[in-house]
C-alpha cells in the first residue's frame, strides 16, 4: 500500500519538476515548483519523517515559492520574455546528467534504508511511539549546536549583505514598484 502511495507521489513530483524546467511561463513554472515541493513533502510522510515533511511545506512550498513569486512580480515582466536558452546549454546538460549519475550511484551503493522495504523503519518508529520531533530538537540544540549556530550566522551574514546591497546610497530615492508596473501596463 505504501509503495502505491509512494509511486503516485513520485509521479506527481516528477511531473511538477518537469513543469519547472519545460514551462516557458515563469509563474506557471513556479506553480509546478510548488507541486513538486508538496510531492516531496508527501514522500517524506511515506518515509515516516513527519517533521521533515512539515518543514518542507513551511519553508520550500511556502516561503521559497512566495519569495520567487514576489521577485517575479517586482521585476519588469518584459525582461522575462527574453530567450531563456544560451550557449551554455550543452555544458548545463552535461553537468545535470553528471549530478544525476553521481546521486544514483551514491544511493545504490549506500546503506540507506530502502523505501521498498519500509517495514523495519515502520516498526522502529511504532516502537518509539513518537514523530522523532524531540530527537530532532535534541540533536539540533545539544549534539550539533555549534554547526547549527554557524549555519545561522552564515544566514545572518547573507541577509545583512543582501540588505546592504539592495539599500544602495542613502541619498538615492527608494526604487518604487508602482512606476515600473505602470510602465509595463502602458
Amino acid at each position: 500500500m505504501s509503495a502505491i502511495v509512494f509511486y503516485v507521489l513520485a509521479v506527481i513530483t516528477v511531473i511538477g519538476a518537469l513543469g519547472v524546467v519545460l514551462d516557458r511561463n515563469v509563474v506557471r513554472a513556479t506553480l509546478s515548483l510548488l507541486i513538486a515541493m508538496l510531492g516531496v513533502a508527501g514522500i517524506f510522510l511515506v518515509a515516516y519523517a513527519e517533521f521533515l515533511a512539515l518543514a518542507q511545506i513551511l519553508i520550500y512550498a511556502g516561503a521559497v515559492t512566495i519569495v520567487i513569486l514576489f521577485a517575479i512580480m517586482l521585476t519588469r515582466t518584459t525582461d522575462l520574455n527574453i530567450n531563456l536558452d544560451n550557449p551554455q546549454r550543452p555544458v548545463a546538460f552535461l553537468i545535470a546528467v553528471g549530478v544525476f549519475v553521481l546521486l544514483t550511484l551514491t544511493f545504490i551503493y549506500s546503506d540507506v534504508p530502502q523505501l521498498a522495504e519500509p517495514d523495519s523503519v515502520a516498526v522502529a518508529i511504532a516502537e518509539s511511539n513518537s514523530t522523532g520531533f524531540e530527537t530532532v530538537g535534541d540533536s539540533l540544540f545539544n549534539q550539533w549546536a555549534i554547526p547549527f549556530e554557524i549555519a545561522s550566522v552564515i544566514l545572518l551574514v547573507a541577509m545583512v549583505g543582501a540588505i546592504a546591497l539592495a539599500r544602495g546610497d542613502d541619498n538615492e530615492p527608494a526604487v518604487d514598484a508602482s512606476v515600473e508596473i505602470n510602465e509595463v501596463s502602458a
Binding site: L58, G62, I66, T131
Partner: peptide, 25 residues
C-alpha cells in the same frame, strides 16, 4: 497529530502563494 501546531502554521503559509498568483494573473 502530534505536530498539530506546526502543521497549522505550515499549511496556512501555502495559501499566500494562491493570493500572489491571483494577483499576478
Amino acid at each position: 497529530q502530534e505536530l498539530g501546531l506546526l502543521y497549522i502554521v505550515a499549511i496556512s503559509t501555502v495559501g499566500i502563494v494562491g493570493l500572489l498568483i491571483a494577483g499576478y494573473t
